[in-house]
Amino acid sequence: MIQDIEPHQLINPYDHDYEHDVRNDDVIFIFDNKRVLVKEHTDHLIFPVKKELKEKHDYIFLFKIDDIRCYLIRDNEEIEGYVFKDVWSLRTDDKHSASFLYALVTAYQLANWYDNNQYCGRCGDKMIRVKEERALSCPSCGHRVYPRIVPAVIVGIIDGDRICITRYAQGYGHNALVAGFVEIGETIEQTVEREVMEEVGLKVKNIRYYKSQPWGFVDDLLLGFYCDVDGDNTIHMDRNELKIAHFVRREDIVLQPDHLSLTNEMMQRFKEGKTC
């Protein structure tokens, strides 16, 4: 999955002091809406480093990949050899790019958070970064905000040796599982039951947790579950959400074209005769 970058490690505690000590070889992420400044090499992604920047910038420390510090700047600078590419278009499970693809997606999540919280949601004053933690604070009313993380479920619905495979009505075009966001006042298990009923009209039982995944493309923390059909296995598909929903035998499952997502791992696990 996208976060599986061993032996490398993403180290995410915020350290304000690093913003006063940006080193020449530290990585700099520069975004333009949904695009990032990057150089595509034959076997890996290359992002600008501080010594390649000619202008003076306000550097926001993001995290480290091993000992490499990664920063964000919120203004653009053209750098020879680099071009802006759509973040989603760089999705690849190439092993050479794994650690910096994960860094890119996490940086993209944080960049969106900084951009979307420039002004206080209570009084409208300009927000400022605080030194002691990764947070933004309003100097007028004291309102403080933290990075946005959205919990969502991925659900493998099992009926004997079959699993419910879906495809979204819009967006991502490959095979997937039932998925949805947690609503206010719900337990995660209640979210599983509700999303399954809403999307495919099934009752489920034996809900069991498998694994989680950060998915910074859309601020999600994905929580994977398997469950069993309870009673009638007739699918009643929500055509606003899905264009395909049917039970598929494990040997007939067609996986996604890369191995980045929790969804794909759960489908592959069932295909191999495993669940949790």
Rank of each mutant, 00 (worst) to 15 (best):
P7Q: 11
H8I: 00
Y14H: 06
D15H: 13
Y18K: 11
E19F: 01
R23P: 01
R23K: 15
N24G: 13
N24A: 14
K34S: 13
E40C: 07
L45S: 01
I46C: 02
I46T: 11
F47S: 00
E55Y: 04
F63C: 02
I65R: 05
D67C: 04
R69S: 04
I73R: 00
R74P: 00
D75F: 00
E78N: 10
Y82C: 03
K85P: 01
S89F: 09
S89Y: 13
L90I: 07
R91Y: 01
D93T: 10
H96D: 08
S97G: 05
A98N: 06
A98V: 02
L104D: 00
T106F: 06
A107Y: 08
A107T: 06
Q109G: 06
L110E: 07
N112P: 03
D115W: 05
N116I: 05
N116G: 12
N117P: 05
Q118G: 10
C120T: 02
R122K: 14
K126M: 04
I128G: 08
R129T: 12
K131A: 11
E132R: 06
A135M: 08
S137L: 10
P139N: 02
H143A: 08
Y146M: 09
P147I: 12
V153E: 14
G160W: 01
R167A: 05
Y168E: 14
Q170S: 13
Y172I: 02
Y172T: 04
N175V: 08
V178C: 11
A179N: 12
V182C: 07
I188A: 11
E189D: 12
T191S: 15
T191N: 12
V192N: 06
N206S: 14
S212K: 12
D230P: 02
D230V: 02
D232G: 10
I235C: 05
M237I: 15
N240W: 13
I244D: 11
H246F: 12
V248A: 04
E251T: 09
P257S: 07
H259T: 15
L260Q: 15
S261A: 15
L262V: 07
F270N: 13
